[in-house]
Design a protein around this nucleic acid. Structure first.
Ligand SMILES: [Zn+2]
Ligand SMILES: [Zn+2]
Ligand SMILES: [Zn+2]
Ligand SMILES: [Zn+2]
Lengths: 182, 182
DNA sequence: CTCAGAAATGTTATAAGGTAACATCGTGCG
DNA sequence: CGCACGATGTTACCTTATAACATTTCTGAG
């Protein structure tokens, strides 16, 4: 058996959640292949323009992140990669680091997971709503947040490099379904 | 040797950072014992008022979190506790969970670490500036941020339960000292 | 072309953070 | 007393991430 094999609990967890009403999820309401294609071609364009090397592996990892609109864990990606090749954690983390640097994905610190970014060309600071039940994410318009943060930081002489805004709660669907208790 | 023993790299890391100019840190510019005393007495008061039980262990963990204004890792606290008693990770995490529920500490998701909260009586959502070099944290005024977030969330029918705002960068001191490269 | 340096990837091992599950203890109340 | 409940103890394990070093692949200068 390979080293770094994936535990049963992790195995096959890709795309599944504890959410009882995944049927209504964003992902199932549209042709997601289009999302993936768009993301990949945009990534190619952005990297070409910047002289960044979107190697086949990095591209593949990006594709795997984009398999769903839910945040995906690094080891979920590793498990998928291992179906195709021999792979160890550093392979995945390096690719994720690269993709993050290029703004092609974002890491959600509250979930230790990654989501694809649909607008890697915009240097926008990012903010997300995250449903604690179905894990769906929804980007917030960052302008006002960022400017307020920037103003306060400037007042203190603090030089911003990165900002994390993650709002946890219940999405409309999960509220309707009566999901309760924190 | 005890189980859950602390690695050499972690051992004694409490209160140390990679920051070359810790001398200027907030912590060294004031009588920190006052901070600790204030925090503990406030905690007692808050818990008494709420009927929450600030047991000796929980109190001790809170005290350890307050040893510094820097964020402290759970295993750093464990290491300190183990100098006094036999202790395992759940002991620390349970105490941290309790303290967090009471708003006595906050977890910084971007650092996997915890800081004491000086205003546990206020139900304010919290936001922090975090220096990537010296790790000092500085709370942001959350009102405008929270109201902007609330407005956007409401527009989407999203029910907020918790929010994380962590701004990473360089504090004034570290900028002066010429810390560079991201 | 070629070869040296840089960038990317492979490989092994381990660190660091966190939780499940079940046993035990202590205290207050019927 | 005896039981219910919250807190703590204990063992074992899981998940996430990185260090360190070897090897391969790419790229550009000469
Ligand atoms: Zn889609
Ligand atoms: Zn939901
Ligand atoms: Zn202080
Ligand atoms: Zn600093």
């Amino acid at each position: 058996m390979l080293p770094y094999n994936i535990s049963e609990s992790t195995k096959g967890r890709m795309k599944t959640t504890s959410c009882p009403h995944k049927k209504n999820s964003h992902t199932s309401q549209h042709d997601h292949n289009i999302c993936i294609e768009k993301a990949l071609s945009k990534a190619e364009a952005v990297c070409r323009q910047r002289g960044a090397r979107l190697t086949p592996q990095r591209r593949r990892v990006l594709e795997l992140v984009w398999q769903t609109h839910e945040p995906v864990g690094a080891y979920d990606i590793l498990a998928e990669l291992q179906k195709e090749m021999r792979a160890a954690p550093p392979t995945v983390y390096r690719a994720l680091d690269f993709l993050q640097q290029q703004g092609l994905i974002h890491r959600l610190a509250s979930l230790n997971a990654y989501v694809g970014c649909a607008t890697p060309d915009r240097a926008d600071k990012v903010a997300y709503l995250i449903c604690r039940c179905c894990k769906e994410t929804s980007p917030l318009a960052p302008q006002n947040l960022s400017s307020e943060i920037a103003a306060q930081a400037e007042r203190k002489g603090f030089q911003i490099e990165n900002q994390i805004v993650e709002v946890l709660g219940l999405c409309p669907t999960c509220q309707q379904e009566g999901v309760v208790d924190e």
